[in-house]
Amino acid sequence: MKSVGDNIKQSRVALGLSQAAAAKKLNISTPAFCKIETGQTDLNVSRLMQIAKTFKVTVTQLLSGDQKEATSTEEVITLKSELIEKEEEINKLRKKVIDLYDKLGM
C-alpha cells in the first residue's frame, strides 16, 4: 500500500510539476514539500486540502491513491434516477410473480 506522500508525488508528477514548482504553488519551501512526499512530515487536514485543491484531485484520491476521476454530481443524479427506474421495474415483476402464484393456487 502506498503512503499519502507517494500519492501526493504521483499527483504532482501527473501534473508535470517539479518538487520546487509544487512547493511554490503551495507557498512552502522545496525541502518542506520534499518532507511531505517522503512522509517525514505529518500532514494536517488543511494542508492536505490545500494540496488536493492545488493538484486538482480530491482528498480521498490523495489518501487512497485512486487516481480515477471522482464521479460528477451529474453522473450521481443520473445513476440514482436509473436505480429508481430499475427498482420500479423489479416491483412490477414481483407483482406479476405474485399474481401468477395466485392464479396457480399456490
Rank of each mutant, 00 (worst) to 15 (best):
M1H: 07
M1L: 08
K2W: 00
K2G: 00
K2S: 01
S3V: 04
N7P: 01
I8R: 08
I8H: 01
I8N: 01
I8M: 04
Q10D: 06
S11H: 01
S11P: 04
R12A: 11
V13R: 14
V13G: 07
V13F: 09
A14V: 02
G16D: 06
L17G: 07
S18M: 11
A20W: 07
A21S: 15
A23T: 11
A23N: 09
A23P: 09
K25C: 01
K25T: 09
I28H: 10
S29A: 14
S29T: 14
T30Q: 15
P31W: 13
A32F: 14
A32Q: 08
F33V: 02
F33T: 03
C34K: 13
K35S: 09
K35C: 07
I36D: 01
I36F: 03
E37Q: 00
T38G: 03
T38Q: 08
T38V: 01
T41S: 12
L43K: 05
N44S: 11
V45A: 07
V45N: 09
S46I: 08
L48K: 02
L48H: 01
M49L: 04
Q50P: 03
Q50K: 13
I51A: 05
K53Y: 08
F55K: 12
F55L: 15
K56G: 02
V57C: 00
T58Y: 12
T58M: 13
T60C: 11
Q61F: 01
Q61N: 12
Q61R: 02
L62K: 00
L62M: 09
L63Y: 02
L63C: 07
G65Y: 02
G65I: 00
D66I: 12
D66W: 04
Q67S: 05
Q67G: 01
K68N: 12
K68Y: 05
E69I: 08
E69W: 02
E69C: 01
E69F: 09
E69M: 10
A70H: 03
A70C: 10
A70E: 13
T71E: 14
T71H: 08
T71L: 10
S72V: 02
T73Y: 15
E74N: 11
E74W: 03
E75W: 05
E75Y: 05
E75P: 01
E75C: 06
V76M: 10
V76I: 12
I77C: 09
T78E: 15
L79G: 03
S81L: 14
L83A: 10
I84D: 07
I84G: 00
E89C: 08
E89L: 06
E89S: 10
I90T: 06
I90F: 08
N91V: 08
N91I: 11
L93P: 05
L93I: 10
L93E: 09
R94A: 05
K95T: 11
K96C: 00
I98Q: 15
I98T: 15
D99S: 15
L100F: 03
L100P: 07
Y101F: 03
Y101M: 08
D102P: 04
K103M: 14
L104I: 11
G105E: 11
M106G: 13
